[in-house]
Design a protein around this nucleic acid. Structure first.
Length: 114
DNA sequence: GCCCTACATCAAC
DNA sequence: GTTGATGTAGGGC
């Protein structure tokens, strides 16, 4: 399979490290947004955060499922925009105390702000 | 060094 | 639905 055009594993950059570190600060029963993480690490770019989380070499130590959009939706997960993966993560979050409703965060008060 | 592409976004239309 | 903008990283030249 490895032949050409394969980004595969590259070592985490300093920027990605900051992202993972910020996400790990989120306690159980709490969620945060890409924007919050971006601001936390000193950048206004939420997509850079998304890229780092997508690669997430620290999973499941880094709970990417606790990072949601500013729209309170899951947006995407592991390359999937929706599906059984999303549903399972929502169930997991609900077990931790985070309430979701139809793929959206029910209470914005559960957002973890830095 | 510069330009292009991709990204799990955001904002505006 | 679309486009443009943001920041980061990879690849090609």
């Amino acid at each position: 399979m490895k032949h050409l055009i394969e980004k595969t594993d590259r070592d985490p950059t300093a920027f990605e490290m900051r992202v993972y570190d910020a996400v790990r600060e989120v306690p159980p029963g709490r969620v945060t947004t890409y924007r919050e993480v971006a601001e936390r690490i000193g950048c206004g770019s939420s997509r850079a955060v998304g890229q780092a989380l997508r690669r997430n070499p620290f999973a499941p130590e880094v709970p990417c499922h606790r990072v949601i959009r500013s729209d309170m939706t899951m947006g995407g997960f592991k390359g999937r925009e929706m599906g059984a993966v999303i549903t399972e993560k929502i169930k997991l979050l609900e077990y931790e105390g985070v309430r979701f409703r139809e793929g959206k965060l029910s209470d914005s008060e559960q957002l973890f702000l830095y």
